[in-house]
Design a binder for these strands. Structure first.
Lengths: 226, 226
DNA sequence: TCTCTGTAGATTGTAAACAGTTACTCATTG
DNA sequence: CAATGAGTAACTGTTTACAATCTACAGAGA
């Protein structure tokens, strides 16, 4: 048996459509495309040097994630961020993360909390020297741990389907309200301590409080209604 | 301006892939395929008289709904129903239906409750002359109303993604425990009354109770662990 | 018995072509 | 001047065919 450490991890061999999905998602969430922009299959295929097949697969998935809108015989249009989207994403996230936390708090054991503490440690340092992109990354990383340990494939998938939009929201928030960086650490530390009680009810209450707080800040963003 | 009531609703022109998705889902949930059966793209394409394109689109969607498992370079296999699936579907359903009910109870107004009462009336009659398939249909119809009135596109989509599996579970339950038919009406009536209070908290409690009850019955099914 | 190798079968990815639709332009009509 | 309608261009939806890649299985060899 050859240990995992020495095998070449290169031939990842994911489906081409999955790679295209990731690339396009990053381009959209990273602001490389304008909201409302018309993405044409042939253009994308030419640009990414693949055929239309994987492109269509990627666009279908991005539509499920809410990043593009697919209009029949018209093509894909980059979604515009609305107040309704923020509300939907956050209420849905609250619902599933509540479930995830209730399960995770009894499954994380030592390993999970160690991972969390590592992230928290980095958050503390971000609080001093501010890099918005790092803050977004750490925030997501913290919550990824909860979903990873909740041991629930379907919840994990729902999270993955809204994770990209959550990223967009966090970035937008950082751009408008840089003051949040100061509360990043303390709020997550509080949530971690709630989880550490190992009581599902306490974990769920912790999530409710955490998500509501995040939503309240986001609501102050100036967004179109729909 | 012509009112919506008189325009012909026909030319909807759904994409072929969507139609194929519905056909295959019905064939799987209806038991036309054996669990674990290998579904080959070319066979399906020949059988349904369409090309592989729409077939692939459909299989990708059915995988998200948990009806088939896609193994790279191996193809699609009909999912086997496990105890884990039952647990995941029901806990996820509980989480999102809780949210849906909290929103729906203040939005259903008269129209929504009228729809519910119509379904409840039919449930009452089913309780006397028993037809399992009708019971499944009415049960889903009742909950569809909650999701329709919660006015939340993303929750609606998550529901649609597990609705098929819930259907499978309900059918399996009916086959094993025909006695449930007696509680169908009363449990849903109770839930309806909780929603009618117009208080989100009461609605959520009603859902918790309802889903837990449904799950407890399902757990008695004899299923493989994974 | 175990390992290796080869082959057949299946899927994935690519490419090209056609059909169907949509939106747009612009002349025509009232 | 607004509304209508034909005509057109562009794009997507679908089909077909082919090349590349991978998996599983069976059989040869140690």
């Amino acid at each position: 048996m050859i240990p995992d450490d020495v095998v070449s991890p290169l031939p990842s061999q994911r489906a081409l459509g999955d790679l295209v999905t990731d690339v396009l998602r990053e381009m959209i969430t990273g602001g490389r495309f304008q909201p409302g922009q018309h993405l044409k299959e042939t253009e994308l295929a030419d640009a990414l040097k693949v055929s239309r097949g994987p492109i269509r697969q990627a666009l279908a998935r991005l539509e499920e994630e809410g990043h593009v809108e697919l209009r029949r015989h018209r093509g894909a249009f980059v979604s515009t961020l609305t107040r309704t989207d923020v509300e939907e994403v956050h209420t849905l996230r609250g619902a599933i993360e509540r479930l995830a936390a209730g399960r995770a708090c009894t499954r994380m054991q030592g390993a999970g909390f160690a991972e969390m503490d590592e992230v928290l440690e980095q958050m503390k340092s971000v609080d001093t020297k501010i890099d918005p992109e790092d803050a977004v990354r750490l925030d997501l990383q913290f919550h990824d741990i909860i979903y990873a340990y909740c041991d629930h494939g379907r919840v994990q998938r729902v999270w993955e389907s809204i994770r990209g939009q959550v990223t967009v929201f966090l970035r937008a928030r950082n751009a408008s309200f840089p003051d949040f960086l100061e509360v990043g650490y303390s709020e997550h530390k509080e949530l971690r301590d709630a989880l550490a009680l190992g009581d599902p009810q306490a974990a769920q209450d912790g999530i409710d409080k955490h998500i509501v707080g995040a939503y309240e800040r986001l609501k102050r963003l100036n967004l179109p209604d729909r």
